[in-house]
Design a protein around this nucleic acid. Structure first.
Length: 223
DNA sequence: CGCTCGATATTCT
DNA sequence: GAATATCGAGCGA
């Protein structure tokens, strides 16, 4: 098992978001009998969020607050927040050393290990509704505010991202505008594996700026 | 299938 | 008071 190190996250946030698609999000739970249970899934959808200088849609765009402070700290840490008074969303902090803040929202996974347990936590077996969507993913992996700040480069934390094993395949990743935001809506900082059966039809068909490259070879200025 | 609406923490005006 | 990086129930076509 190869856990993604800090150096992976010490890069421009949109590149980190793009490169996280196809990698394995892992969570370990300790069962009643003391045994560790592994929940995991291939990341199929992410979004990059920046800082005051490059992203008006980011939680970090008005400086640090109690909620968003993990975006300003070391990279590779979990930034978990509670939104709409109902749902948790899971991010991992990522940014180059010379920029003040950044994080990648993990919006969807394709369950690999522990799908049965995820179904229990979610109350459904439908792959579309199991762990696709940031709120659903957090519930499927039992991630709450209690996990805010976990070091995701350290497996002892119980939450990390690693290189996929033999099941790993090349993913056709497409860049699109981000979902559910109004500011900076033209920025293509959402990355989806369009061949994933877990992404809902509506979101898979979200406008892909076709005049742009499928992969952000020509990135927008990030500083 | 697609639309509207409620829940309601955190932050900002 | 208003907006928000969401979801699911309810309703109509």
């Amino acid at each position: 098992m190869t856990v993604l190190p800090q150096s992976f996250y010490s890069r421009p946030t949109d590149l980190v978001a793009r490169d996280l698609v196809g990698r394995l999000l892992v969570r370990t739970l300790v069962a009643a009998d003391g045994r560790k249970k592994r929940l995991s899934g291939i990341i199929v959808e992410t979004e990059a969020y920046g800082h005051a200088g490059n992203d008006a849609a980011s939680h970090a765009c008005r400086g640090p607050t109690p909620r968003n402070r993990m975006m300003f700290g070391p990279v590779g840490r979990a930034y978990v927040y509670f939104t709409y008074g109902a749902h948790h969303c899971v991010n991992v902090s990522a940014r180059p050393p010379d920029l003040p803040a950044g994080a990648v929202l993990i919006r969807g996974i394709e369950p690999v290990e522990g799908a049965d347990h995820m179904a229990l936590l979610r109350g459904t077996c439908d792959a579309r509704l199991l762990a696709s969507g940031p709120g659903r993913l957090a519930q499927a992996m039992a991630i709450t505010l209690a996990h805010n700040g976990l070091d995701m480069t350290d497996p002892d934390s119980g939450l990390w991202i690693e290189e996929p094993g033999s099941g790993g395949k090349t993913r056709a990743t497409v860049a699109t505008p981000r979902i559910g935001i109004t500011k900076a809506a033209d920025k293509s900082w959402r990355f989806v594996d369009q061949s994933s059966p877990c992404i809902s039809r509506r979101l898979r068909h979200a406008r892909t700026h076709t005049h742009m490259c499928a992969l952000p070879a020509t990135r927008n200025k990030t500083s």
